[in-house]
Computed example of a mutant assay.
Amino acid sequence: MLEIINGFLVVYFVILCTLSAIVPILVKPIAACFSRPSSKERSILTELIKLKAEQQKISMKDEFAAYSKLQRKINKLDSELKENSQSRLSKSLAIKGSINIILQVVVALIIIISVIWFRREPIVALNSNLFPFSTMLRYPSDMPNAISTHVWVVISNVSIRSLLKPILS
C-alpha cells in the first residue's frame, strides 16, 4: 500500500517535527541554567537559616529583647530574599519566553528551508490512486500517487503533536 521513496527525508522531517513539538519541554532546563540563585541570595539564605536556628535556642518569655532583635533581623533578611527571588522569577520568565521563541523560530526556519529545498522530492508513493486528492498530495512533484515534502511535513506535524499531546500536557 505504501512505498517509501526517500527514507532519509522521512526520518529527517519526522525528527524536525518532533523537535518542534518538544521545544516547550527543552526550554525549562535551558532556562534553568540562566536563572540560578546568586551568591548573595545563597548567603542570605544561609544566614537566615542560622538566625532561625539561633532564635529557636532562645526562650521568648525569658529573653524577649534578644528574641525580638533576632526576629527583626530575620524579617529584614526574609523580605530581602523575597525581593531577590521575585526579580529572579521575572528574569526567568523573560528568559523562558525568549528561548522558546528563538528555538521555535530556528526550527521553523529549518523546516521551511528544507521544504523549499526538497520541494520536488517525493517522500512516499502510494500503490492506489487517491483521485481527486492525488494532485494535491504530490504537488509540486511529478510522480503519480506520491506524497510531497509539503504534505509529509503537515502529516508528520499533526500526527506527532497528537501523539505527544498527553505527554506535553
Rank of each mutant, 00 (worst) to 15 (best):
T18F: 15
I74N: 07
S114H: 09
Q55D: 01
S68Q: 14
Q55R: 10
I110N: 06
S141V: 02
I113F: 14
V153N: 03
L81E: 03
P122I: 11
F64D: 02
V124T: 07
E54H: 08
R161W: 09
L81H: 08
T135R: 05
K50F: 08
A146H: 03
L19A: 15
V105G: 07
S141Q: 03
L89V: 04
Y12M: 10
V27G: 01
L19P: 03
R72V: 05
N75H: 07
V23Y: 09
T46N: 14
S39A: 10
S39C: 01
E80T: 07
S128D: 08
L19N: 13
F8W: 15
S128W: 08
S169L: 08
R138I: 02
Y139M: 04
V10S: 02
V106I: 15
Q55G: 03
S114D: 09
A32Y: 09
N75I: 05
I15H: 13
I167D: 00
S148N: 03
L93Y: 09
L137K: 03
K82C: 00
I155R: 04
Y12E: 06
M1P: 10
R161P: 01
V115Q: 04
A53T: 13
I160D: 07
K76R: 10
A21V: 10
S39T: 12
K165A: 09
T135V: 03
G97H: 07
L48A: 06
T149N: 02
Q104L: 11
P122N: 11
S128M: 04
E3N: 13
I113H: 06
A53C: 01
L48Y: 07
L164G: 01
S38R: 07
A94R: 11
S148M: 01
P140W: 06
I74Y: 12
L2T: 15
V153D: 02
I167W: 11
I49S: 07
I111P: 05
V14L: 15
S87G: 00
S114Y: 10
V151M: 10
V27I: 08
L103E: 05
S35Y: 00
D142V: 09
I102S: 12
S59G: 04
F64Q: 09
C17D: 11
M1R: 13
E3F: 05
V154G: 02
K76T: 13
L163K: 06
K52D: 06
S39G: 04
C33E: 02
F34S: 02
C17R: 06
V23C: 05
L109I: 15
K50I: 05
F64T: 12
M143L: 15
L16T: 13
S79I: 08
F34I: 03
I49F: 10
K96M: 10
V23P: 00
S169R: 11
I111S: 03
I74M: 02
Y12A: 08
L163V: 15
S59E: 13
A66R: 11
L19V: 14
N100V: 01
Q86V: 02
S169N: 11
S35W: 00
K61C: 00
L163D: 06
S39P: 00
S169A: 07
K28W: 03
T149P: 00
R72N: 12
I113P: 00
Q71S: 14
L89M: 04
I102W: 11
S87I: 09
Q104D: 10
P29M: 04
Y67Q: 11
K96L: 02
G7W: 15
R138M: 06
E47Y: 04
A94G: 05
S35C: 08
K91H: 12
E83P: 00
P166Y: 15
I58E: 06
